[in-house]
Design a protein around this nucleic acid. Structure first.
Lengths: 195, 195
DNA sequence: GCACGATCTTAACAATTGTCATCGTCCTTT
DNA sequence: AAAGGACGATGACAATTGTTAAGATCGTGC
């Protein structure tokens, strides 16, 4: 029987039926409504989550207490704060649902046990971490080399669904600009399209 | 006998003497002069490097063919392009020595063999990858939330040695601004200090 | 030592983005 | 239906950074 989490795992490694069951059983199944937290601000991140359905916004509060949206996780991707997970200290981030979200969670301890028992799973974990690092790295590149309009164009091109699903003020925060600036950029793009 | 690479490994895992020797023997020892490449542009990255002494600049060429400095690796840190290493495709990056650099390199194959033989080494590899991801993530955060002057202040505070060792035009590129802008920012900071 | 090129500084002006204030729309709640 | 609030659009002005050009300084090689 198909399962979104096992489908994703299958893209990395092949598990025997009993291994797949043991893997799944280490996870809990959860559901949050729009506006509810997967990780509350100031709490310790103790799980790795897999988003089966829905959309999550990552943010953190800077020194001035401002919310800074830094990423979105839609269905099909993993989600955690590696720093907090490893150190056990409170996370600097919060995860909040932009849509009703269905997800699976595994605590660090059981995950480490699976890693120890099945080295292939650790290999998978390392690959997922690497991919996350690459995603973040690519985003950082974009910030260094591109101006806001180019970042927005690329965001629209690379994740067109998200443009529809994410309120513009969060898109603006993700792009590192103010909502007014995003409005201005969108207008310029509209004007340029239809002279 | 102390060895910079084993010293670094010892901060993650404890190796038996024979394991340490097997680990070391999988590496080759290398030396490049200032201005020489550890990874030439357009080549496949086939190794993970450990910088024992020296300083390396990472850059990549964007669509317009411009060099974009994205990071520096001083002595004591690991260095690779995970994307190219994993895919076997040409790297989008180049690594070039800013100073005479002494380093150790291990190809992907032997590393994977070590991972398979000693799961603790894979654990270490995963941790190093996570740390790299966190470093990059933190840098991306800084770009989203801070203006250029703040990014420069933090760079000076966090890596004061590098400010001395890296030519300013590369610092500017790393900060995502033009050399002229960095000059202006430095002047403003000097003026503010000594009125 | 000298000359050359690379690097850094400085200044004026242009482009981009931020800030502030206002307005309209849509949605929710009553 | 009315009131209120969140969201987005718009415009004027300020702050930041880019662009261009010129000159100063430094190091390197001849």
């Amino acid at each position: 029987m198909p399962h979104p989490l096992l489908d994703r795992v299958a893209t990395y490694i092949t598990l025997a039926e009993n291994e797949a069951q043991e893997f799944l059983q280490a996870f809990t199944e959860n559901q949050v409504a729009k506006g509810e937290y997967l990780l509350q601000p100031g709490k310790v991140c103790q799980h790795i989550h897999f988003i089966a359905e829905g959309l999550v916004r990552h943010y953190h509060a800077d020194e001035a207490g401002q919310e800074i949206t830094c990423d979105f996780t839609p269905e099909g991707r993993f989600l955690t704060d590696l720093m907090s997970l490893r150190s056990g200290e409170p996370s600097q981030y919060a995860f909040i649902a932009l849509e009703s979200t269905h997800y699976y969670s595994i605590p660090r301890g059981p995950l480490e046990q699976l890693y120890a028992k099945y080295p292939a799973m650790e290999t998978m974990g390392r690959q997922i971490t690497e991919e996350t690092a690459l995603r973040i790295s690519h985003q950082a590149q974009a910030f260094i080399t591109q101006k806001a309009e180019d970042r927005y164009r690329n965001f629209v091109r690379q994740q067109p669904e998200l443009v529809q699903r994410v309120p513009q003020k969060y898109v603006a925060a993700y792009l590192g600009i103010k909502p007014e600036s995003l409005s201005r950029i969108r207008k310029q793009m509209m004007d340029a399209e239809k002279p």
